Amino acid sequence: MGHDIARLHHVGHVVDDMAQAITLYERLGFAVPPPSCPAMPLREGAAPEPFGAANTHADFPRSFLELATCVRDGDTDRLPAGTRLVPLDAPAELLPRLVERISETSAGLAACLDRFQGLHILMFSSSDIDAAAARLTAAGVRHGGVNTVRRAAPPGAGTPVETVRYLEIDGDGSGAGPGSVAEGRVGLVADLDPDVQGARHLDHPNGAVDLVEAVLCVADRELAAVQQRYETCLGRPARPEGPARVLDLDGAALTLVPDSGLAALLPGERPAALPALVGCTVAVRDLSLTRDLLRRNGLPLRETPSGDLFVPAEAALGTAVVFRRAAPPAAAP
């Protein structure tokens, strides 16, 4: 039986200073383009100024790492040179709602930063997002339905417009807001269009080729409930692996680890809060070459019990960045 959720789509690293974050990711060996940010005039007749939220990606063929930050009105100090301003272009009757949604996104990122700087976004890739939405509804999982946005495709893509369809999970409890759970923004996105994604920069100096794991740390007493929640959302059972519970996807995984077991999984790491996305893992072509690059760039390295390398959260703006040797391609039948 096939699954309507196939793999990890992206994780989002919410940062206070975008220029600092891009410098870090370049030292980590990722190719990161300048960020994009909405822009609009703050007064009649003025030039458009950035507002809301800015983001950029380190892209892979089927997934990506996102860097995101909130931008206060007129605040350009923390945006790097080369930031692409995207003037809001919408009919007058739709513009207020568009501005409201962007402002809500910015407020959400600000709330994330109030908790800690680090990973706050976890999105899964769905081959049939409408079927997945129906399944979640039938299972009693609250969500905001499937949204559709369109944006300019990158140069070189076979289409001028990229269509993105996504769904956000709503938290439980009276205090939970729409589109957010305790650990952050979690949801589904329709599979990336390979033609559009292939037009983006996919060649990274560290040899990274895919996002293959996200690690969520929870209080020990909450592990069973969180496991059940994600088993329902993903339509897959978890398996035990030491103190952790692993939900296997197609070539990737979500790892749930109790607070008491995190040091066994990522030696020396402690969560900034609970629950928290404490790390992500990328697959690389040659782990020894990646190690050499990270050392040349002066980054501290630790090793997991399974032999992966990682840069600790204290050196990576609040999240452990793990590097794993990519699995060899499957043999042709």
Rank of each mutant, 00 (worst) to 15 (best):
R142D: 13
I22V: 13
P61E: 10
A219L: 11
A68Y: 00
R78I: 05
L301P: 07
A253F: 03
V257D: 04
D220C: 09
M1V: 09
L113E: 10
R200C: 06
D259T: 08
E93A: 15
A252Y: 07
R236Y: 02
F116N: 05
D128S: 12
P275R: 13
V149Q: 08
L136K: 00
L98T: 14
P243R: 08
A132S: 13
A90P: 10
G279C: 03
G12M: 01
P160F: 00
A332L: 15
P48W: 11
E93W: 15
C70W: 02
V149S: 06
S125W: 06
T105G: 12
G156M: 12
Y166F: 15
A132V: 02
P205W: 10
S288D: 14
D75C: 07
R27F: 09
A332P: 04
Q197G: 01
V282F: 06
L301S: 07
A58F: 01
A253C: 12
G145V: 14
S127T: 14
A327P: 00
P38Q: 00
E213L: 03
R221Q: 12
G187V: 01
G171S: 01
A224P: 05
F124M: 09
A39W: 03
L98Q: 15
G198I: 05
L119K: 00
D130K: 08
G207C: 11
M123N: 14
A19F: 09
P155V: 03
H57Y: 15
P271T: 00
D170V: 01
T281N: 03
G118T: 08
A46M: 12
P243F: 07
R101V: 13
A253M: 11
E241K: 06
S306P: 09
G12P: 02
L317F: 08
C37W: 04
R150M: 03
L256T: 07
L211M: 02
G82F: 00
D286R: 15
A58H: 02
A134N: 12
A58S: 13
H143K: 10
E314H: 07
G279Q: 00
R245C: 02
L188F: 15
R296Q: 15
M123K: 09
H120S: 03
R239S: 14
D191C: 14
L88E: 01
T159V: 15
H13Q: 05
D17G: 06
A199L: 09
D89C: 12
T83P: 07
V282K: 07
A272Y: 04
R7S: 14
E44V: 10
D193G: 02
E213C: 05
E44L: 10
A190P: 12
L98W: 10
E66A: 12
L109G: 00
R165C: 01
L79V: 06
